[in-house]
Structures are given as C-alpha cells and as structure tokens.
Amino acid sequence: MRPFAYVKPADVAEAVQAVATEPGAKFLGGGTNLVDLMREGIERPHTVVDVTGLPLDEVHELPGGGLRIGALVRNSVLAAHPRVRTSYPVLSQAILAGASAQLRNMATVGGNLLQRTRCPYFYDLAAACNKREPGAGCDAIGGFTRSHAILGVSDSCIATHPSDMCVALAALDAVVEVRSVRGTRRIPLVDFHVLPGDTPHVETTLAADELITAVELPPSPAPSRYRKVRDRASYAFALVSVAAALEVRDGTVAAVRLALGGVAPKPWRAREAERLLLGGPATEEAFRQAADAELAPATARPGNAFKSGLARATITATLRELIIEGEAA
C-alpha cells in the first residue's frame, strides 16, 4: 500500500480537526475494509486517522426506549448486546450473517456503514470503473453481474452496497450522527447512502471531514428478522437479503418494515411494498404482489436477472416466517 502518515487522536475534537486540515486523510476504524482497499491500491490516503481509541464504543439505552450505538462498537459486541438481541433481532441476525467472527470482532459500526462495494471490476485496477475513476466507464456492465444491483442502478454503475447490518438499520429507521469541525449533524440511515446516478464515486452524504459518532435506533418495532441468501452457507456476500418487521392484527398487516440487500447500490428500503402491504391482508399472495411492485422498476442484466425472482421469494418467505413466529409467540 502507499505509505501514509498515521495519526491517533486523543478525542473526537482532535480527530475531526485532523481530517479538516488534511484533505487526503481518512478515518480508520477496524480496518477490515479500508486496509484491504489500501493494500489493493484502491484507497490511497496520505494520512490515516485511527479513531479506534476514541470513547465511542458504548451502547446506551435512550429515554423512550431507543438505543444509541457508539460508532466504534464492534460488530460482534453489538450483535451480542442483550437489548439488540431481544428488541432488534433483525439487527443482531444481520450482523451475524455478515463476514466471519474474526472480522466482526474487528469491524466497527461506523466502518460498516462506509463499506465499499465488492464489485470485482471496482476491485481490479485493470478494469474500468466509474466509482474508482470517475468517467472511466463501467466494465461490470456487460461482464459478470451476479453480485450486482437491479434497483437504483444507472448507466454509470451497477454495484451493490455489501453491508448486511445497514439493511437492518434501514428497516429500523436508524439515524446516523456525524461530527465535524462545523458541528454535529443527524442523517436518517436511508438518506445516508446515495444512488450512483452519474457520480458513483459519491456513495454517501457524509462530507470528507465528517466522522460518524453514533447510530441511533428508535424504539423497537414489531417482531423482526433477517434472511440472507448467498452462494454458500456462510461467509459470503448476499445475493439477496431481506430485513423485515411485521405486525399482524386479525389477519391484517398493522405495521411493516422491509429493506433489501444485495439488489441495490444502497441499503434498499422497500417503501412501495410497505405501502401496498399496510392495512392489507397478511397473505402470501399479498406479500408476492407487494414484492413484485417493489421490484417492477428493476433493471436486470443476464447475470443478475434471477434476483427479482429470488428477492420476491425471499421477501415472501421472510414475512411468512414472521407470521409463524408471531403465531408461536
């Protein structure tokens, strides 16, 4: 990797100051993505600001029932947190569905939000990639697209966001708190990541000098779960994943949250499906129709055309499992 200066700030103020004065600087958390990208020559920061020593590694209960998760809480710690396991099972399950135990022990919540795509054309410097090099073109289009997006894509980029955790956070209406020298700002998770359009190198609404300090969860919704479908039983990125929360009263959908992973350049909150489901019958047919409506705008390639069908099947199965779970409880 390219040599860089290493800075370890003592507090948050010092950390944001360090990047404010150094345009080529990057925050370093668990390193599981950034170190890999630096070694591959894709990320080439002049300065690395190691934030792992900052006191942002605690989970607090919020008045009113929500949770405040420090940006440096390790993924494994969050997944195992008793409140997360009982009140936000979708989040715990999503984290445990991602990567490996070793990586979850290293990776931070803030870093997970900033994971970059696993598109092989992004990773291979020999390929053209608009995300890596704006204007270079996109070799993924016309290439291997098994891991690629069908929703929210553009002619510039069809890469997916690889995170599982973020899909759960999108369903949970999480809010991201960020700090810079200009102060603190709160961004709904669903607005944190942006679609590629013709600027796929811009992946979030985070400014270069802003540090993620926390993620806040509103009080827990209805029973929730995460379902991930991938090419092997574990330790693989999602082909399709579904984060869902569902409350059914007298056979009618009283509340529903639905977010998709593996199918879009950002964690995909399925608003259209939610709108169709809410107040309607909690039947498999209704689930399928809602899924179809959500997936209607899909733009597929030969290599990922199966994802619409897979997403519909996975949405339907996940909602069905939630009903069975609800009946059992």
């Binding site: 696993r118 092989p120 054309y121 990773y123 291979d124 020999a126 390929a127 070799d139 016309g142 290439g143 291997f144 891991s147 090419d231 092997r232 039983a233 574990s234 330790y235 693989a236 990125f237």
Partner: peptide
C-alpha cells in the same frame, strides 16, 4: 470467472471464489 471480453479472471480471490466453508 474468466471475463469473455478480456480473458481476465474476475474472482481471483477467496472472497469471491467460493470454496466450501465449515458450514457447507
């Protein structure tokens, strides 16, 4: 995965070339 346009192996790593893991 050998890209038929370029002859380049596009999954030249263990994250994307899926050998069976314990769970398989």
């Amino acid at each position: 995965q050998v890209d038929p346009r370029t002859g380049r192996i596009m999954n030249a790593g263990l994250a994307e070339y899926h050998v069976p893991v314990h769970a398989d």
